[in-house]
Design a binder for these strands. Structure first.
Lengths: 191, 191, 191, 191
DNA sequence: TATGAATGAGAGTTCATTCAT
DNA sequence: TATGAATGAACTCTCATTCAT
């Protein structure tokens, strides 16, 4: 019954969300997951492997969340949809789930293996950029630039909201979203 | 001789920059700083306090770096100047100094005390926003929104550069910077 | 199907010969023997019992080896035959069989039960001593003394050879063997 | 105060003598030595290093014991003296001291470093062999052979005595010793 | 009989912190 | 004020053993 593997991963996610990665001990994890310490090692070689697996697992959930309700609307509608999903992802204070900030701090997230996995998972986003460029709506910059200009503000704002330093305000956020869209669109020419 | 306090902080910064926060042990710190282990505790209550102090100390240096060469030019020139400083801050790989990513991962960075300290330190930035708004150049949004739209892309790009995942290209970056400026400016109206 | 008992013992012997007693884990043993971990416990109460059984089992094989080719020659010829078998036993580096050194390090080898078993197994040797004494060839000392003087040098030399610290030289060894025989024989009188 | 190093080594020796090497745990050692677990690691890199150091330390004591009272008598007198010291060494049941059997089972005892140390320590013995050969008393065989024939019986008998399987009997043992001496001496010619 | 997932005590080791000097 | 030897709780991980299937 490999469902215990999942139980352990969910417990790890919750513990990291609650107390931070550097407070994650295998004993605490075992207790939280309601398994014996040794059981963890049936499913994961060691702590590092556990975190590595958690990374992929969380990324899958993150991608699922970000692309939830993603349909073939107009490119701008797609952008807006994703933008608010990134915002919500960051602002999520669900105590048993990692928010984006915590996710991005998992060590090894910069490994080549993970990067490839990430790239693959977020392909729909790149497809959207390409569509927008083909339709003459989005400016001809590399994906990294477009993502930074377009979505990093949403992630950062989400983070601020989750920390309680910003009131959630739909109409203002919509304005911000539109400005992000404009910033990557061809609606004004680069001087 | 309280100069030892500074010796210890500098040693801590270097060790974290080199080997990461989770590899910082008080023994290693003592050795690197060339003091006895017990001596550290004459200047800092415990490890947590040490890191908290380091946080403030580094923030001071970060602010100094960001605002270096900051003069009373036009608001757009000021913005551009800051934008590239944020970019460089993130991309800094100087081995005996924390880069922005490492800085932002110091635990406790989200405490109210620290936030107040940060707000105070970055006041010149808020002043610039106010100036721009008074001159009718920057749109009337709250500071958090302006910062997110304007500068988070720079920080994120800096991070990507430091990880080696982005080719550095000055002319492209200037285009990106201008788009960020446009995104917070009044040059296009919110629909 | 109690043949599994033997499969397990053989796997244990090989593992100990290869990696030493202190590296013998029940998991590894199960894997090597191609049985489930729990199966071992159907044949052996616990690890200690397993080793105890292995001890007897190996002793049987050891005795078989020592007494192989043992015929009713002259007593001195019998002695020489046994002497070189003890030597070979110690120097044996066959990887899936315990050598004498490894055998003698099995814990519990000094138990009374084992000692009785050993005594019984090595009876032919004692018979040889008695024969020699009846024929007036071997001096009237207790068996322990005769064994120590006569055969311990062979065992020790075997050990040195197996460790690679002694050049193997047949003619020299024959001289040594003869001196051991002389040392227990009546060929010189005790002063 | 590095005297704790010695306290730890003595405690380790006692524990191994009492319960065997494979039952030596660092916790038990700490308790027996009356130091904290961490303290052991101030003096020894890890468990392996501790045992390696113990090996050298015990060898020093062993040599001291074997060569105690060793004077410039006749070669045969020297031999007899050493022979009984080897016997006593093996038969030693002093509970807080390793006997020869336990000593020889310490892992790494076959390392080149240790072998050189051992050779050096037992030099007086080799000198005795050489003297005997120069005086025409001891036969021309290599040291390893002479040692095996001459002293291994003493060690083995000592071991048997310590296990309680042999009564200590001075006059009989003297006979055995003389036979060992004869076995390496020129008093009878190799046929 | 046989399985192998699960157990949990205990292993070796680290490290923040203390305190006699 | 400064030292650094000593502490011991807590860490990651192993492994002999059990038991529901």
């Amino acid at each position: 019954m490999a469902y215990k593997r999942n139980v352990i991963l969910r417990a790890a996610e919750q513990l990291i969300a609650d107390e931070g990665l550097h407070n994650l001990s295998m004993q605490k994890l075992a207790t939280t997951a309601q398994v014996a310490a040794g059981t963890i090692y049936r499913y994961f070689t060691d702590k590092e492997a556990l975190i590595s697996e958690l990374r992929k697992d969380v990324l899958k959930n993150v991608a699922e969340f970000v692309f939830s309700g993603f349909t073939q609307e107009s490119v701008e509608a797609q952008f807006t949809h994703l933008w608010f999903n990134f915002l919500k992802l960051g602002s999520n204070r669900n105590s048993n789930q990692l928010n984006y900030q915590q996710y991005s701090q998992l060590p090894g997230i910069e490994s080549d293996e993970h990067r490839a996995f990430e790239q693959n998972t977020f392909e729909p986003l790149l497809t959207m950029f390409k569509q927008g460029q083909q339709q003459g709506l989005i400016t001809d910059l590399e994906d990294e630039y477009l993502f930074s200009i377009g979505f990093e503000p949403a992630i950062a704002l989400g983070h601020r909201i989750s920390e309680g330093h910003l009131e959630y305000n739909d109409s203002e956020l919509l304005v911000v979203c539109k400005r992000c869209w404009s910033a990557i669109s061809t609606s004004f020419s680069d001087s």
